[in-house]
Write a protein that binds this DNA or RNA. Structure first.
Lengths: 148, 148
DNA sequence: TGAAATCCGACTGATATAGTAGGAATTGAG
DNA sequence: CTCAATTCCTACTATATCAGTCGGATTTCA
């Protein structure tokens, strides 16, 4: 299950993508958009800053903005910055150090496949995609269900 | 991140699939195959039994066997029995009760898509598939990397 | 100078995870 | 008949993570 860090943080990044090139947003306004605690969100944005995904301006009228254009930031980058290097299962990670039976594990192939399906989606989706989708969603005013 | 319940439990189910129609296995032998505590595995198999995925025989020479043929049990069923109804994010679940902004959430479409990609894999893979793959993997003796 | 903001680290309560432990009940084999 | 092997069931524990809160230092614009 995805933690609130990933969920709140990604939402904040989309909010920043919506105003990219126009203005900055403070944690207070970002939190207001989501209806959550601004001090908590502060931590999340701070992590995004350390990862080089947002730029900050201190002092009055300061705030945050995306460090790169929305189409150049993938969802996967954002989530990794927030959640750390989380893989589905240890033995899938780059340095599968503690998978003692890596050579003959009955489940490893499945986890690899699953992980790669997940990464396909997360790498292919940029903040621009999400912001665009959100805009049309708001315009339509309703939410037709659209899995696929 | 998938918990040990799902990982150990699925492995155990594959072990059972390997001997389906031939014999039963006790928690002790199942645990021995994996090198983990048998008392812990007991809990997991117990959950699998409650879910109707395995049959048990008590007493000496007792043990567990699959309740249905390996090709009729999907990985998703097994994981759900072990981990409970876990979705990626609350608002993706059938009764998205607490997603107050379900109608205008910028991230929900992504979670829906991701969840459906995951379910595609988990629903399409049966214990027979996994046991077959494991057999050929053991025959080859080595593990060529094969993502995809 | 003061208000608005980022920055930073420590603290807390609740919940979940990964087991352990103990014992009751059942059953096949000798 | 008895014993050992086994499932079954419930309670307990230690550790870690999560989801925040809090206090204060620093920077900057008006």
């Amino acid at each position: 299950m995805l933690s609130t860090r990933g969920r709140y943080g990604l939402k904040a990044m989309i909010d920043l993508a919506m105003v990219y090139g126009q203005t900055r947003l403070s944690t207070l306004s970002l939190a207001g958009l989501q209806g959550i605690s601004d001090t908590y969100l502060e931590q999340l944005v701070s992590a995004l800053k350390k990862a080089g995904l947002v730029l900050s301006t201190r002092g009055a009228q300061g705030g945050y903005e995306l460090a790169r254009a929305p189409e150049e930031i993938t969802v996967n980058e954002v989530l990794r910055a927030l959640e750390g290097e989380t893989t589905l299962v240890d033995c899938v990670s780059a340095d599968r150090v503690d998978c003692t039976n890596a050579c003959s594990c009955s489940t490893r192939p499945l986890w690899l496949k699953l992980q790669s399906r997940i990464n396909e989606v997360l790498d292919a989706t940029t903040l621009k995609d999400m912001a665009d989708d959100y805009r049309t969603q708001l315009e339509r005013g309703t939410n037709e269900e659209d899995l696929s």
